[in-house]
């Protein structure tokens, strides 16, 4: 028994190791480039990358849950934009920043709930429902904002994403702490709770899950709602960073979010994925963007590299699976 337990622990390690090696590779390549090596690994740059990652990472936490359950959420980025706009709008109405943030959060949750209800009640494919919701949420965001940026007075909300935190003992911006804290919570939820196990079961084989007495519809609705809440939160962070409510923000970001999950070992057919893997996926993309920008490489170059990495990551993942 001891040997097999050790063996499986080793296997889990190698499952994470793949994406992790990729991350190390990206970091070391850039830190060896003579043009940027002096600046790349500096603390200021690292915190800058981390801050940039917060928004994608928060949405990706929810997306990980959805992808493990065998679904997908294409409305994530639109949802985020809607939340961002609503926060700015609420502050302009004279509401307190806290209340404004809550409104953004709840709006995200409601969009997620709507996704979950449509998918389970109408028995529609998640791809289609969330594709529709992608347009609806983006449209509402533009409607609320009258198709332009909403300027809002600065409040403490805008301190959440600064690179140098206000009370300096915080070391990192509140947004990064929030990301770390919620990641740990989600990792525990996924690995150590009955709910997490049920999500994996649904993604692995929904019929079996039903056979085992799991109320699959209810779990799915919860999963989409949680993911919506994370998008709402990411929208609040987006507002914090931009200081305005921009309805066109995060266009196409849903694909980055999905890519992060997939690079981190998530399987689009469900049943597989992990929070730690997803975070590594987020950081691989963030460091790549950052490094390419510092090198002065054009934008299209980044896109090509990231595209290639997604394909390589998934190909390596399949290869690894064939071995077990």
């Amino acid at each position: 028994m001891k040997i097999t337990a050790g063996y499986s622990r080793l296997k889990k390690l190698t499952n994470l190791l793949g994406p992790f090696i990729g991350l190390i590779l990206v970091i070391s390549i850039f830190s060896l480039m003579p043009e940027v090596s002096g600046r790349f690994l500096r603390l200021a740059n690292l915190t800058s990358v981390a801050t940039q990652s917060v928004i994608v990472a928060l949405s990706a936490l929810g997306m990980t849950l959805i992808i493990i359950s065998g679904g997908i959420d294409l409305s994530a980025a639109s949802n985020l934009a809607l939340s961002c706009v609503l926060v700015a709008y609420s502050i302009n109405l004279g509401l307190s920043p806290l209340l404004a943030a809550l409104i953004g959060l709840v709006a995200g949750g409601l969009i997620g709930l709507a996704n979950g209800l449509l998918i389970t009640r109408l028995r529609l494919v998640p791809f289609i429902v969330t594709l529709g919701m992608m347009g609806i949420a983006r449209g509402i965001a533009k409607w609320v904002a009258r198709n332009q940026k909403i300027d809002a007075p600065l409040t403490w909300l805008n301190d959440l994403m600064v690179r140098t935190p206000h009370p300096s003992w915080l070391l990192l911006s509140p947004g990064i702490w929030l990301m770390i804290f919620l990641s740990i919570i989600m990792a525990v939820v996924l690995k150590k709770t009955v709910f997490g196990r049920r999500v994996v079961a649904i993604g692995s084989n929904e019929l079996t899950a039903r056979l085992c007495g799991i109320r699959t519809d209810r779990i799915k609705i919860i999963v989409y709602t949680i993911s919506g809440l994370f998008c709402g939160l990411a929208g609040v962070m987006e507002f914090s960073r931009l200081t305005v409510g921009d309805p066109t923000v995060a266009m196409g970001l849903e694909l980055d979010i999905i890519a992060a999950v997939v690079i981190g070992g998530g399987s689009l057919s469900g049943g597989e994925g992990s929070i730690s893997g997803t975070l590594i996926g987020v950081f691989i993309m963030a460091f790549l963007r950052n490094g390419c920008t510092m090198m002065g490489w054009p934008n299209y170059f980044q896109e090509i590299i990231i595209g290639a990495i997604i394909i390589i990551a998934v190909a390596l993942d399949r290869l690894r699976h064939r071995q077990d």
């Binding site: 150590k192 009955v194 079961a201 692995s204 084989n205 019929l207 799991i214 049943g271």
Partner: peptide
């Protein structure tokens, strides 16, 4: 239907009744 092929033997076996392994909400 009967089994989730990619899940472990332990998960497949206990999935219908996880209650005995939960303490303070954690498995």
């Amino acid at each position: 239907e009967g089994l989730a092929a990619r899940m472990s033997l332990a998960d497949n076996l206990t999935l219908g009744y996880l209650k005995p392994y939960v303490k303070n909400g954690l498995l």
